[in-house]
Design a protein around this nucleic acid. Structure first.
Lengths: 406, 406
DNA sequence: GGACTTTAGTTCGATCGACGAACAAGAGAG
DNA sequence: CTCTCTTGTTCGTCGATCGAACTAAAGTCC
């Protein structure tokens, strides 16, 4: 039940129906490949004739290709269809506090080459370095493919025009990085916040080969900071100023540690890796300065997790405490948005057996309905590179996105 | 950038384009009436011929009607079009803790008859009473019109099938009220949570005659409880289990008063009318029992507002304190969803001069970007009956809603 | 091995709807 | 009365869906 925006709508023209059906067909191929024309016709409840003409168009454009004949028990053997991803390339860039990662990938999310370097905090120098690496990657590793764009993920807020409004970890404020990289490389560049990008990755390249069925979820990354991406009806919510998704700064205790955002008691201040490490080390207060001192007393989040696994009671307590606070924040999200699922990413998933029960208990305690109390909270599989996959999705998603109508 | 739902999509058929354009046209008439065919053609960037045929259809169905000829400086005088609302009737019902309101209205939100009675807490008896009153209203006051349905608003959570999951103020749990009233009256019945309904009213019957331009906002009702309705891209967010919008229960202080939901430190526990009155009267703790004892020590929220207006310093302090806590909650909403606007409803808007500065200060302090810090917070005009207008919108909105495509 | 059945994919005419041009209907200006 | 300007209608064209007929390719039955 959406209102029609009478100030800026898109009317149906002669070609609208065809566009819609072409996109539906392309998405069906994407999610169900390999698939035959006859199968597509059945799924779309349409005559096979129409599928023939639509596929003919998509074949001519190179959006799909014909694969092998399938074996069927009776009748003529169908010619299977696939989406063309192999020679459509993307450069995904993940800028983090410690290191910056550059990945060459195809549209399907298959990794072709991954490299990284220590993050340069001067934006111009960083873009210079990135441009050099992108060009080199494309020259040496992109054999026979065409690069369709660059997706870049940043730990901070980004506006619609690719300007970084505020990235406390990098010390950036109002930095235009999209146009900078676009000019240097001559490629279209997309920039997004890391939490939002992870959510995008989960929509478009999620488990189950190109999108799992969940269309309402919240992605929460627990890392140096706490980022969130909100997805409603298969669409990432970015808000009026494109800065939605900062659930990391909902207050869950006014007397808690001071947060990098300046306020006190934020979810992030209680549950970031820094907070967990600080809790383990002993000082309950995390430092108020930004960028945060990363390896604190030489101990990292991974160390805490390893020690907890080895039976260190103080480490276990620090992690379950983090889980409890995280559960408090997730309960707020559950009540506020009632998602079908919450996905957790970040190092903390390495101690899932310790963290999950604390999260679950807190959600069950504070959720307002029985159904909401049972909202699944699932960890992102380790090593799945969600930020980089999000960067890929930034480039690949527009090709498959639903048309705006009405 | 929405994904196409490959499990449940709507393909474009021969008539899809026509449906889309008809709905756009109907919405243009709704928002810009009176309007001529030629104007519609210009706005839709379409030939006048198409407008003629579309309007002919809408006229035949009775969705629009032709009004008077307009005066223009040159050329043939255009025949103005209007949407037919006058004889399309709705019964709106608002069930509250103290009283239940029944309003007969037309599709345009014009009030024809309003009555109320003390709420009966037994659902069956309440539905009996409502059925009697609905029938009487329609028999005596609905002259020459046809009732297209009943919209019912409840202070609690409602599922998609019109079952009240939990309404603590009424003491209801798992009560099917939609089918109960539908059977008694023979009319289609829609049931919604009151916060969501207020947001709906603001989308569909908002200031500016049928929808203001704001398509991303959050409506917050501060009353016996704190309800919220989240609107993203002109669409009410209801979540997976249809219970989204309970921002009233985000934690903003773990050591705060106990909330009716069982948890501690909820936004609602700090900012409901009950909390404000309790703060004024002196006990910082509100009673833990539900339903709440409404007139506490004989003093109501309205009393506090009146006394604050008369210069009572304790009343003023209680209200600004409520504003401060409310600002804390709204800051969380601003960071999480980045709405273009926040709308506040409820008795508290009667002391807006006291409350607003506190809210604004708290949002400015905690918002993460300069733009978000300036998010407009506007009060719903007093006496605008937002809940009942929401109930009307429940029935009227589906007629004008955008088609689901893709 | 030839007829029959079954399924996949293509072709083609019917019909519907957008689109643009021509046309009729008012209304004021000169 | 004629010219101009604007509104609203009509009609032929063209693009797209839709269903029926047709071809292609496989296995099965007698």
């Amino acid at each position: 039940m959406r209102t029609i925006n009478t100030r800026d709508f898109s009317r149906a023209t002669r070609s609208t129906s065809r566009q819609i059906n072409r996109l539906i067909l392309l998405n069906l191929v994407r999610e169900l490949q390999p698939i035959s024309r006859a199968d597509l016709a059945r799924r779309m409840a349409v005559g096979r004739g129409m599928v023939t003409t639509l596929v003919k168009e998509l074949l001519a454009e190179g959006a799909v290709y014909e694969g092998a004949l399938a074996d069927v028990p009776r009748g003529r053997r169908p010619k299977m269809l696939h989406v063309r991803t192999r020679d459509r390339l993307v450069v995904a860039i993940d800028i983090r506090f410690s290191r910056t990662y550059v990945l060459l990938s195809d549209f399907g999310g298959n990794e072709m080459a991954l490299e990284s370097f220590a993050t340069i905090f001067n934006p111009d120098q960083l873009l210079d370095e990135l441009a050099i690496r992108v060009r080199r990657l494309l020259r040496t590793r992109a054999t026979g493919g065409h690069c369709e764009g660059i997706g870049m993920v940043v730990p901070g807020m980004v506006d619609r025009r690719g300007r970084v409004l505020n990235a406390p970890q990098l010390g950036w404020r109002d930095v235009q990085i999209r146009s900078g990289l676009a000019e240097r490389t001559g490629l279209p560049v997309h920039v997004e916040n890391s939490g939002a990008a992870c959510a995008l990755a989960h929509i478009w390249l999620g488990p189950g080969e190109g999108g799992n069925g969940v269309r309402d979820f919240v992605y929460v990354t627990v890392s140096d900071g706490v980022g969130t991406g909100v997805v409603v009806n298969g669409e990432l919510v970015r808000g009026h100023g494109h800065t939605a998704g900062e659930f990391g700064h909902i207050p869950i205790g006014p007397d808690g540690p001071r947060c990098v955002c300046g306020a006190q008691g934020c979810l992030e201040a209680h549950t970031s890796n820094l907070a967990t490490v600080a809790r383990y080390v002993g000082h309950e207060q995390s430092p108020a300065v930004a960028p945060p001192l990363f390896p604190q007393d030489g101990i990292t989040m991974d160390d805490v997790i390893v020690r907890a696994g080895a039976g260190d009671e103080r480490a276990r307590a620090a992690l379950t405490e983090t889980g409890r606070y995280l559960g408090l924040g997730l309960a707020a999200i559950v009540n506020a948005l009632n998602p079908a699922q919450i996905v957790i990413g970040g190092e903390i998933t390495g101690a899932w057996d310790l963290v999950e029960p604390a999260i679950r208990a807190e959600i069950a305690r504070r959720a307002l309905t029985r159904e909401a109390a049972g909202t699944p909270v699932v960890p992102e599989p380790a090593g799945s590179l969600p930020r980089l996959r999000g960067a890929i999705a930034l480039v690949a998603a527009p090709v498959y996105a639903a048309p705006e109508v009405g």
